[in-house]
Design a binder for these strands. Structure first.
Lengths: 214, 214
DNA sequence: TATACTATGTGCTTGTGATAACAAGAGCAA
DNA sequence: TTGCTCTTGTTATCACAAGCACATAGTATA
């Protein structure tokens, strides 16, 4: 039976794994593999095959029972979910060491493309890092609106973050990835996500410490 | 009633929030706040006060009913959980742009200290970034054993990751934070965690896309 | 000392994600 | 067509985390 394209609510954990699956599928594709089974994806990603099937089933029925999934078509179906079918365009604020590392990383890998970067340092403005042009932070609103960018990565000192966040929200940004683990004030319709290496290391310390003390 | 120090099993989500609480408490401390309530922490961290209280209760009873928590003593109690009471020492593999950004970040902020870095590029070996000395990857086992380092951050190209992971495990590393979202082979007693900016951005794309399509 | 007040700590309910077990569908062969 | 095999898609169960709501215990005040 054909079902409506998306089930009611899709768990965040599933969405996170979808990113992982995409990586795996691309890897299979590059190896020339045409057909795979849920078990193959599961092994490669370190999850259970039932999880893979369940995750995929949230979006529709893509497999053939008794056979498996067609790598190519599964990939393009997943790409279709984000409606991008190409690069996912994002902006980056803060072209310091971390910021430029991310730009470099995005040129080498995967699906995300940083199409505009911003900094307040005049020495950096108007230069290019790879294909990414660096603008003044004063131009954030203009450029973001011009290119209809919806996602921004923030790689600036914590003290400046909220000020920039306000500008981004005003410019129409709908999701912010902050590289500093500090609370952000945003409207309800703006997604916020944190990535912080040192926080994660601290978390690992907690985990290790508790292992012995239980 | 005094209870045994740690309750049976502590949820991962709680441990993650503990890191966040630490940040908030330090922030309160710097502002000169002596006494706080669960509601204060909750607001600052964007969670419910009952969650804060429950999280803390996993480790013991630190508050005074009718008053709240003493900032200073709560902080040192939490620090005590990791048995470090000072810096948390970690190693870093790969002194590229990303790696050196992390080292710089760790000198400026928070609790984690990178006490040894490793690279295979001879130009980088024996130099120092801040207070962190850069060693040859050939010395990983020696140095890690010498300083009894238990946690390592990996910031190298995906193709080299597994090779380094094997060396780290052999050297006694018990937790690995990988900056590339690729599966790692490790023994069961080694914790593995991933932090990948671009994966997180992709995840946000999924989230935004689905918002409209439900 | 008694009483009112305040914020903690904690059972208990509720909701959500993970897991396993199973039913259903597709291909193939006789 | 019938039966067999294989792997998907789904259902039912289990485990766990979130949040409420209240009993508890300490503080302040008279």
């Amino acid at each position: 039976m054909m079902k409506n394209y998306f089930k009611s609510v899709i768990p965040e954990t599933t969405l996170r794994r979808m990113v992982y699956y995409t990586r795996c599928l691309n890897s299979f594709k590059n190896e020339g593999v045409k057909l795979i089974q849920s078990e193959d994806i599961a092994k490669k990603c370190g999850v259970k095959s039932s999880v893979v099937r369940k995750d995929l089933s949230y979006f529709g029925e893509f497999g053939v029972r008794g056979k498996g999934y067609d790598v190519e078509s599964l990939l393009s179906t997943i790409n279709g979910i984000t409606n991008t079918f190409g690069k996912m365009n994002a902006a980056l604020i803060g072209v310091g060491k971390l910021g430029s590392a991310i730009i470099k990383h995005s040129t080498e890998n995967f699906n995300v493309k940083i199409i505009a970067a911003f900094d307040k340092d005049k020495k950096k403005i108007n230069k290019e890092i790879g294909e990414t042009k660096v603008y003044s932070v004063k131009d954030i609103e203009n450029i973001i609106k011009k290119y209809k960018i919806k996602i921004a990565i923030i790689a600036i000192p914590p003290s400046d973050v909220q000020e920039i966040v306000d500008i981004l929200v005003k410019a129409g940004i709908k999701a912010i990835l902050s590289l500093a683990l500090i609370p952000l004030n945003v409207p309800d319709d703006v997604e916020v996500s944190f990535v912080d290496v040192l926080s994660e290391v601290e978390f690992l310390f907690y985990k290790l410490s508790l292992r012995r003390n239980i």
